[in-house]
Amino acid sequence: MTDINRDTIDRLVGIDHSSNLYITRHQRDKVAHATQGSEIGLFDPNLPGLSLQERLLAALLACHVTPNEILKQEYLDRLATIGTPRALIKTIIDGHFEILESKRLEAVMRFTHTLITDPIRADRTALLKLKEAGLSTPEIVTLAQLIAFISYQIRLAAGLSAMKSLER
C-alpha cells in the first residue's frame, strides 16, 4: 500500500528526504504544500458532485493521452482500490467513449480528451455539451480544475524526474 502521509510527487518521483533535490524542492515548501493540498481537495471522496470514480477516470485518461506512465499507474491503482471494473478502465484507455453506458461519463471523457490534447479546441461548444449531459456548474468547475491540475502535476513530475536523473 502507498503511504498516504507522504507527498505524492516526492513518492512517485522517488525524491528521498536525504537528497539535494528534496532540499531544493522543499525550499519552495508553500508550492509543495499547495500541490498536495490541491490533489487532496480534488480527490476528496466527500466532494459533492462528480463521483470519485468519475474524477479518477478523468485523471487516468489525462495521464494516458499526455502521456505519463508513473502518474497513470498511480491513478490505475487508486481506481482498483475503489473497485472500478477493469472492463470500464479498458474502454476508456482504448478511447471507445461511444460505448460507455453513461452518457454523462462519455461527455466527461470527451471533454477531458480535448482539454488535454488540444486545449484551444476546448471551447464554448465543448463546455455546453457538459451542461447538456446533465453536469451542474460546480461539477464543471471541479472537472475543469481537475484536468488542469493533472496537466500541471504531469509537468511537475516530468521536470523533477529529469532533475533527479541528473543527480545520480
Binding site: 482539454l115 486545449p119 480544475q145 484536468i147 488542469a148 500541471y152 504531469i154 511537475l156 521536470g159
Partner: peptide, 19 residues
C-alpha cells in the same frame, strides 16, 4: 525548479482560461 513550476502552473492556468 522555479522555471519548472512557472511552466507547469500555466499548463493549469491556460486550460481554465481557455475552456
Amino acid at each position: 525548479l522555479d522555471l519548472i513550476h512557472s511552466i507547469a502552473i500555466f499548463a493549469w492556468a491556460n486550460r481554465l482560461m481557455l475552456n
